[in-house]
Design a protein around this nucleic acid. Structure first.
Lengths: 194, 194, 194, 194
DNA sequence: AATGAATGAGGATTCATTCAT
DNA sequence: GATGAATGAATCCTCATTCAT
C-alpha cells in the first residue's frame, strides 16, 4: 500500500480533516486520532508527518489563511478603481469558499489557539496586518487621513460578522454577510444612497 | 474551619477564579483543580458545589453576562436623549470592568463553549438579542427603518473589537476601543464632523 | 429537631435503608450517602451512629440473619413431629418476609461481603451451622446416620434456590419455592407419592 | 517490544487475570489497574483492548461460561446411557478446572454482576437454560414427567454447593462436592442403595 | 442530635506520543 | 511508508470520612 510521494497528499488530507474536525466539534478539543481517521490514516502517521498536534493545527491555520489571502489577491487584481479594490477585499472575505461553517468555526478557534501558541499568534497578526494594509491602501485615495481609522473598523467588523456567524450555524447566504459590511463601507464613503 | 453559609461565597470565588484561569490560559482547556486552587479550595469542593466542569463554566458565563447587562442598564438609566442612549450602550460595552484582559479572553472562549454546549449557546443568544434590541430602540428615533441594520453592524463591530483585542493583550485604554465604535456610530448618524 | 432516644430509631432506619439500597442497586457498590438519604438523614449522622460503612453492612446482615432465625425458631416451636420440624425449617426459609426481592439480593451480597470481611464470614458461618444443626436434629429420628448428608443437601438447595431467584426478580410465589425444596425432602424420606 | 498479533494474547491474559483478581479480592470491587498489572500490562492497554471495565468483566464471564460449557459437552459425548448422561453433567460441573477457588468466587460475583448489567444477566440466563435443558433431556427417559422438576432441583443444588463452597476457601476435593449432588440424583432415581 | 463543610485518596478513562516491525 | 502496540501522564469525578458548629 505505501506509495512514493505520498507526503503532500497525506499532509493535505490531514489539514483538511483538521478543519472539518474543528468545525464538527466546535473547538480545538479534538483528538489526533479523530483527525487521522477522518483523513483515512492512523494517528501514528499523522505524527510522523507533522511531529505533533500543535503543528497540525498550525498547518491548518496556514492553509486557511493562505486560501483567504489568495482570494483577496485574485480579487484585487481584477479591481480597477480604489472603490473596486476596497469592495474586492470585503467580498473576498465572504467568498463562498471562506464563509463555510467549518471554516468559520476554525477561524474562531484560531483566535483561541493564538492565545496560547506564539506561532499561531504570529500567523494571525500577519494576516491582520496584511488585511489592514490592503484596506488602507485601497481607501487612502478616497478617504485620505481617515483611511487608517476606517480600515481598522472595517477589519474589526469583518471579524465581528464572522464571530457572530459562528453561533448561527444556518447557511446564511454569504452574500448577505458581505452586504452588511459593504453597506458600512458606503456609509463611510458618504454614499448613503443605497 | 467549616463555617455555615459558605455556599454563596465558595461559588462566587469559583466563578471569579474560572474567569481568571481562562484568561491566564487563554482557553477552556483548564483543569477544575487549577480553578479550585485559585479559589482556595479543593477540586472536590468545586464539584460539590457545581456538579461538574461544564456547570462551572456556565456559571462564569452567566456572571460575566450579568455584569455586562447591569452596566448597560445602569448607563441607559442616565441617558436622556436617543443619542445618549446609543452612546451609553457602546460605552458600557467597553467599561473598565468589562474590557479587562481576562474578561475579554473569557468572552472569546464563551463563543467557543457555545459551539458545543447548548446552554452556553442559549445564554449568548439571549445576550445578543438583548443588546440588539437595546440598540434598535435607541437608534430608531434617529435612523428610522435603517435602525435594525445599523444596530446589527454596531453589535458585530463591538464583538469584532473585542475579538481583536484578545490578541493584543496590551492594556490599550478601553476608552480608545470605545472611541472606535462611537466614531462609526457618528458616521451612520451623518455626523462626520468629528 | 434533635430528640432524645433517637439512636435505636436511626439505626433501624439505616439498617432497613441499607437492605433496600442493596436490593435496588443489586450490589454492595452503594454509597453511604444514598443509604442515609433513603433513611432520611445526612451521611454524617450515619457515620456517627455506625462508625463506618462496613459496620452498617454488618448491622444489616445481623438484622437479616436474626429475622430469619426468629422465624425458624417460631416455626419450630409449633412443630410437633420430626417431619413437621423439618418442614417448618424449610417453610420458614421461604416465608414471605424473607423471600422478598431486596432481601434475596441482600443475601447474595452478604456472601460476597463474607469473602472480604471476616466478621461477615463469621456471621454467615454461624447461620449456616445453626441451620444445619436444626436440620440434622429434625432429620435424625427419620433418617438416622443419613441425616447429616441430607441436611447438607437441603441447606445447599435452599441457598441455590435463593441464588437463582435473585436473577428472576419476578414475584414468584414464595410458596412455590418452598414447595420445590419440600419435594426434595419428601423424596429423601422415601415418600415419593406427592 | 511491540509485536504484531498481540490482541488475542493480551485479551486472554486480561480475562484470566480478571478471574484471579476477582478470586483474590472476593468481589467485583477491583481496579482495572490491578487486573492489568496481573496480566503484565498497563491499564491503558486494557482499556484499549476492551473499551472499559464492564466489558472486561463480560469477557471473563463469557470465558468462564464457555469453559464450563465445553466440559459438559465433552462429558456428554462420552456418555452412553441416560444415567451416564445425567452423571456426566453433574461431574463436569465439579471438574477440577471449574471447581477452583478463583472460579468459584467468580461465579458468585457473576450473579452479582447480572443484577446490574443486562448483558451479564443474559449470559447467565443462557447458561442456566442450557444446563436445565441438558438435564431434562438426560432425565426424561428415566423420570418421565418428573424430569423437569428434578432437573430444576439438581441445577439449584449445583449452584447452592458452589455458593457454599465460596465461603470455605479450603481445597475441599471437588470429587466430594460432586458426590453430594450425585447422591441426590440417585435418591431421585429410586436408587437409595449407595 | 444533626449537618453542612471540607478534603485526601483513588479510580476509570482518555490521549499524545513513541517505537518496533 | 504505515501501523499496531504500548504507556505515562493527566483529568474528571466520586466517596468515605472528619470536623466545627
Amino acid at each position: 500500500m505505501p506509495k512514493l510521494g505520498m507526503e503532500p497528499i497525506r499532509r493535505a488530507a490531514l489539514v483538511e480533516a483538521t478543519i472539518h474536525e474543528i468545525g464538527a466539534q466546535g473547538s480545538l478539543d479534538i483528538t489526533v486520532k479523530a483527525i487521522a481517521e477522518r483523513a483515512g490514516m492512523s494517528s501514528a502517521l499523522a505524527h510522523h508527518y507533522f511531529g505533533g498536534k500543535e503543528q497540525i493545527f498550525l498547518a491548518a491555520m496556514r492553509y486557511t489563511l493562505s486560501v483567504y489571502g489568495s482570494e483577496v489577491s485574485a480579487a484585487l487584481k481584477k479591481a480597477k478603481t480604489p472603490l473596486e479594490r476596497a469592495e474586492a477585499i470585503v467580498t473576498a472575505s465572504f467568498s463562498s469558499s471562506n464563509f463555510l461553517p467549518d471554516v468559520i468555526a476554525a477561524w474562531l478557534n484560531f483566535y483561541v489557539l493564538a492565545q496560547t501558541v506564539p506561532d499561531a499568534k504570529r500567523l494571525l497578526s500577519i494576516y491582520q496586518a496584511r488585511l489592514r494594509s490592503n484596506l488602507v491602501h485601497a481607501l487612502r485615495p478616497m478617504l485620505g487621513t481617515r483611511a487608517p481609522d476606517v480600515a481598522s473598523r472595517l477589519a474589526a467588523l469583518i471579524d465581528g460578522v464572522y464571530l457572530r456567524q459562528s453561533l448561527v450555524k444556518s447557511d446564511r447566504d454569504h452574500a448577505i454577510a458581505a452586504q452588511q459590511v459593504l453597506q458600512y463601507l458606503h456609509v463611510e464613503l458618504g454614499d448613503s444612497s443605497k
